[in-house]
Computed example of a mutant assay.
Amino acid sequence: MAIDKVRNYLKKWNADGRVLEFEVSSATVELAAQALHCEGKRIAKTLSFDLGDRCILIVTAGDAKIDNAKYKAKFGKKAKMLPAIEVEEKIGHAVGGVCPFAVNENISVFLDESLKRFDTVFPACGSSNSAIEVNMEELEEYSGACEWVDVCKDWAQAES
């Protein structure tokens, strides 16, 4: 099970005990926010993209949307999400539990600037009813992120 894979992966930072499991689904930003009793923008959603020759993950704030112009300027291609049917095989986690931890080899993880306005955020942990609270340094380290990017829109207006 993917959540077990993530727990095992997080052991190297002694963070496996921080994984939260819910009795309810946390498969969407809205459901995760309800399960965690927090604002949806603090949910760190992990989006899977197909660059043709490889797949990448971009972790964004729950209220952010991919800006196609910024994405194309950064990655040289139009944003094309992986079809849901391919996500688990190519990334290592099924839709609803996709996270930047314990992913398949050769998957590059990018973190969007929309996350930096929070002290902590909640990414999933490999299942549709899990999450972990991490700060930005932990998110960067645990995910093995390549870099921080600015490829989203709509979140700046939503800041409080």
Rank of each mutant, 00 (worst) to 15 (best):
N135C: 13
A27N: 12
V103Y: 09
P123M: 02
E133F: 04
G126Y: 09
D50N: 15
A15Y: 08
A84L: 12
G97N: 10
A124P: 12
V24L: 02
A32S: 14
G52C: 03
L139N: 07
L31I: 00
F118W: 09
A35H: 09
G62K: 00
K78E: 13
F22Q: 00
V109W: 10
I107K: 07
R117D: 06
C99W: 06
S25F: 04
A61V: 02
R54V: 01
F75I: 07
T60I: 15
F101Q: 04
E23W: 00
V95E: 06
I43M: 10
N104C: 02
A15H: 08
Y71C: 03
V29K: 01
N14V: 06
D4G: 13
L111P: 10
I58R: 02
S128G: 15
S108P: 01
F110G: 05
E133Y: 03
E113D: 09
A94G: 11
A84M: 11
S114Y: 11
D112G: 03
L51T: 01
L31G: 00
A102E: 07
A2F: 11
L82H: 09
L31T: 12
A64T: 01
F101E: 02
I3A: 03
A73T: 11
Y9A: 03
K90T: 03
F101W: 09
G97L: 07
P123S: 05
A35D: 10
N8H: 13
F75N: 10
V59C: 10
E88N: 09
G126C: 06
C55R: 11
F101K: 02
A64K: 10
T60C: 15
F122S: 12
W13I: 03
N129S: 14
V19H: 04
P100Y: 07
V87A: 08
P123V: 01
A35Q: 06
E141F: 00
G126E: 06
W13T: 04
K65Q: 14
T28F: 05
E89A: 15
I58Y: 08
P123Y: 07
E39V: 02
A32F: 08
K78S: 14
K12Y: 08
S108A: 13
E39W: 00
L31M: 12
L47E: 06
T120V: 14
E137C: 00
K65V: 05
T120F: 11
E88C: 01
S128H: 14
K11A: 12
N135E: 06
E138K: 06
I56L: 06
W13M: 06
D16Q: 15
I66D: 09
M136I: 12
R7M: 14
V109T: 13
E137G: 00
A69C: 04
H93G: 12
F110V: 05
E30I: 05
